[in-house]
Design a protein around this nucleic acid. Structure first.
Lengths: 153, 153
DNA sequence: TATTGTTATACTCTATAACTATA
DNA sequence: TATAGTTATAGAGTATAACAATA
């Protein structure tokens, strides 16, 4: 441990959680044939329905060019299709295929299962206290952050 | 929120923390002229001292080829140098420059400051309870994980 | 023979800038 | 004139495989 006091230990644990959770999700997604970025896009489509690439770029907080590449990849792997926009011939509506919708549902179920795995054996009051502490930490982080644009969500 | 119950909320907060903390660290590192991967390498050197690329590859859990590239980048930006290994002429010792050492010290200080920012206004018992909960969550995640190699730390 | 690090090659994610088609 | 999405170009991170130098 680099920081030896109580608060340093807390931060160390948080950073460890970031690493372990990231590895866990990357592994799960790879099984579905997805990368983290593509899964994020798929997730937005599952929540918002068919979307223009512009809307996707804004919600993910990445460049339009990047979205072109991500959609190319998801089209090649049959998760989404590009459909014509009904009223704007410049735009395309990125749309989940059956496979894409099924995968979205599966990711959603996986998240529920993960929540159960992590917290099911914990008493409600402890979960609530944990959430309160996380809210506190998130508020501190946001206070420090620049008021810039940054991807929503 | 996709999961509406108490435990789903807890997981949502954790995932949010992962995102926000990741953005915060990426921003801080960019100021120093580092990427996350290069900072990770620099961190290992700061903790372990001069190391062969093979040792670095093992501690980061990445390929030897990747380390060649990361070290190339850190050499170009003057954070490290490649020094001959005293007894093995195949190997190089990746070594922090003065600038690299100063940057490592600064990252270390930054982590302490972050710990203070996040937890200083919190009573000790709450910090302890938070750490206990994180330990519980980490244990659950590890139980589920494959016993594979994976990068340490 | 085995190991260290490189070159060769390839894929993903990311960005900016220039350009086409359409609003 | 402004917007949606593509092509062109570029850099970082990642990987495997083949290879050279050395152990």
């Amino acid at each position: 441990m680099t920081v030896s006091n109580r608060r340093g230990v807390a931060l160390d644990r948080v950073l460890e959680l970031v690493v372990v959770l990231g590895e866990d999700m990357t592994r799960s997604l790879a099984v579905e044939g997805l990368t983290a970025s593509r899964a994020h896009l798929l997730w937005e489509l599952g929540r918002n329905g068919p979307s223009t690439q512009r809307a996707v770029a804004d919600s993910l907080g990445v460049s339009a060019r990047n979205v072109t590449g991500l959609v190319d990849g998801l089209v090649a792997t049959r998760f989404v299709t590009r459909e014509p926009h009904p009223s704007d011939r410049r735009a395309t509506l990125v749309t989940l295929t059956e496979h894409g919708m099924a995968t979205f549902a599966q990711l959603d179920r996986g998240q529920e299962e993960l929540a159960q795995l992590l917290f099911s054996s914990m008493p409600a009051h402890q979960v609530d206290a944990f959430v309160d502490t996380l809210d506190h930490v998130l508020a501190r982080l946001r206070d420090q952050l620049p008021p810039g644009p940054a991807g929503t969500r």
